[in-house]
Design a protein around this nucleic acid. Structure first.
Lengths: 204, 204
DNA sequence: ATTGCCATGTAAGGGGTTACATGATTAT
DNA sequence: ATAATCATGTAACCCCTTACATGGCAAT
């Protein structure tokens, strides 16, 4: 451990749900956490090995559904302790880097039309995400109501976060579109290769 | 170029505002884009060198205010073209990884109290961010109104995004807190080292 | 026959951060 | 004196993704 990679904890978290192979972990993350967290195979398989070496998980060979046999890991008591200790520690603040934010920030260099295009693309993506989240919301809410001690409520609050984020983003798209449309068109004249007036002077 | 690193474009974007040294770029990013984008010195200085090699920026030695002399770079026409071409291309969708989301997702392993603590910490951080954004909002709005062809409107829409994100996050904190408080306390009994009932069977 | 899915893994490389080395100048 | 700021840079390292290699089984 001792590293600040969150992959081992993510995997341990998956293993608390049920014993899983690397493939199972990958599938589970892709189906439930995609938009909130993801891990690549190049991380998952080596990490599972390491978890076993450290006694945090135990692997056993089991026949796969088709193809090769599966190597199924189950979490150990030590693994549960390690996971819980990490889960209790404050989360590191994360500063995400949204490329569309960066492109908009420097939008003055290309003018409103190009910037509006970014907003529209973001809107379409966000609408698709939102529709996707809404589908899952009902399922999870039912599961949370039925099973008394299931992890569903925790998954639901995360999903609600995604829904609220998307709704916020769509409102921001509306507002931004209006703001940009209200701008004078002159900055749209900054065609590629043409320096802006204020920068020309001692150039060339 | 040819890479998918966004550092060179970030720097070129800064250089469209005025000629800057590596230190200036670092300062500017820290003061205006911190929460939306950041670059480390280990990226900035080598990238500036590469930009010069590629003819996208031109460096010249100028006396610094104190200490060593500054190496000030100014963007070239080729640099402006390269930046604009990139700015016009659609942004890559980004899937950010929020550690607090991950810790909440697996909150069932530690119970409501530990999860509520994460929510409270996030709330405090978000409130601080929001206050910070609000300060800048006024300045930027004034600047956008005064100067006719300034980049301020573009910076403002990004800042508005931060404000709306923070407001949304605070609402989410309220909702999540309520949801978690409504949960039965039993899952809080999953103390470190104690396996949950459903997982015990063939263990130890 | 061949595509597609199940399943495990590795190698290479890229992007990025942290930490350090260096050093001059100004303010306390 | 010493701390802080200005200023540039590098080396090490880590995390992570991409792409590939392997291969068996099931369905079309």
């Amino acid at each position: 451990m001792a590293s600040q990679s969150r992959t081992p904890y993510t995997i341990l978290g998956c293993l608390t749900l049920q014993p899983m192979s690397g493939y199972d972990v990958k599938q589970f993350l892709e189906r439930t956490l995609v938009h909130f967290w993801s891990e690549s195979p190049g991380q998952i398989y080596p990490t599972l090995r390491r978890l076993e070496e450290q006694g945090l998980a135990e692997g056993s060979a089991e026949p796969g559904q088709r193809g090769k046999e599966k190597r199924v890991y189950r979490i150990t008591d030590a693994g549960r302790e390690t996971l819980q200790a990490w889960l209790r520690k404050p989360a590191e603040p994360s500063q995400p880097r949204y490329e569309h934010t960066l492109k908009l920030f420097f939008g003055h260099s290309v003018g409103r039309e190009a910037s509006l295009a970014h907003v529209e693309r973001l809107r379409r993506r966000t609408e698709a995400d939102l529709a996707h989240y809404r589908e899952h919301e009902r399922e999870l809410a039912e599961q949370a109501a039925k099973e008394p001690d299931s992890p569903a409520p925790y998954w639901l609050v995360v999903l609600r976060g995604g829904i609220q984020y998307s709704a916020m983003a769509l409102e921001w798209c509306d507002e931004t579109e209006a703001t940009l449309r209200a701008l004078p068109t002159q900055s749209a004249d900054r065609r590629p290769g043409r320096a802006s007036q204020s920068d020309r002077e001692d150039e060339e």
